[in-house]
Computed example of a mutant assay.
Amino acid sequence: MNTYTITEAEFNQLESVRGQLRLVGDLLSVPEGTRANFDAADLSDFLGAQETTVTSLMHAAESRFDQERDDALPAAFISTPEAGGLSPASLVELILAVSGDGIASERMLALSDQLLDLCAQDRAFAAVAQAFDSALERHGVTMAMSVQDGELTRTYVKAAAPAAAAPAAKRTRKRERLTVSVVS
């Protein structure tokens, strides 16, 4: 459920509309046998004006809600990939990676680099990068780093599945070990 903020002036306009609609309701509920003294065209104009007021207030509240929502998103996240944001395709790959679907190590490195670039733009993305690495670790994927000739190499590797344990030797039950000897 969304929360919409209205200004005091808008609230007063709504209060006025509510009062006017109550008045019209009271006028329409005249006792039987008496005649109401108003024209249908005037009533239609009045109701149309009230609808216009309410519609414009709702539009203003929805616009403010949309603006507040957009302001709450970090600028780096909603920017274009060329400006350092994540593209929809990258978001899909990110979701697939953390769900355990195998994607290429090079692609995971590219996603990790994009997250690190976002961290440089907005510290709030550090939590996203940590969650990404934690989710991969839960699926047995870790980043391996090595330095060769002064150059850092990073790759994501999936931990090997534990070797299957050899079947346990069959134990004989005590009853099976009992022997019967006949003494004469």
Rank of each mutant, 00 (worst) to 15 (best):
A161M: 11
T53D: 00
S184W: 06
A126Q: 14
A127Y: 10
T179L: 14
K158Q: 14
Q114G: 14
F125H: 06
S87L: 05
A61W: 07
T55V: 08
F46L: 11
G100L: 02
T153K: 14
E68Y: 07
S99E: 15
I103D: 04
L152Q: 05
S90V: 01
E176G: 08
Q67E: 14
D71I: 00
S79H: 01
Q50M: 14
R35L: 11
T155C: 05
S134V: 05
R175S: 14
V98T: 15
T80K: 13
N2I: 11
S134H: 09
M58P: 01
C119A: 09
G85T: 03
V54H: 04
P31L: 03
E151T: 11
D113I: 04
V180C: 01
E137P: 01
R171H: 08
D70Y: 08
A127K: 11
I6N: 00
G102Y: 06
R154D: 01
S112F: 10
V141F: 02
Q67P: 02
D101Q: 12
L96Q: 14
S146A: 10
D71M: 12
G25N: 05
C119G: 06
S134W: 01
A126C: 08
A40R: 06
V157W: 04
K170Q: 10
K170S: 03
P88M: 10
R22K: 04
V24W: 07
L94P: 03
T7L: 00
I78H: 03
A9W: 00
D113W: 06
F11A: 13
L28D: 05
R69A: 11
Q13P: 03
R175Q: 13
N2S: 13
R171M: 08
V147A: 08
S146T: 15
A49P: 04
G84E: 03
A129Y: 09
Q67K: 15
T55G: 03
I95V: 13
V157M: 12
A126S: 11
L115A: 06
F11I: 00
T80R: 15
S63W: 05
S63D: 14
L47E: 06
S146C: 03
Q114F: 01
A126F: 08
A166D: 12
A49K: 15
A124N: 11
G85F: 02
A110D: 12
R64Y: 02
D26F: 06
R138T: 11
L118R: 10
P74A: 09
S105L: 10
L14F: 02
A60G: 01
G140H: 11
G25R: 05
A124H: 09
A97E: 04
L136K: 08
L115F: 02
F132S: 07
R107S: 07
D26A: 09
R154V: 04
Q67L: 12
A131K: 10
L27R: 07
Q121P: 03
L96M: 12
R154P: 00
T3A: 11
Q130G: 09
A169I: 06
V24H: 01
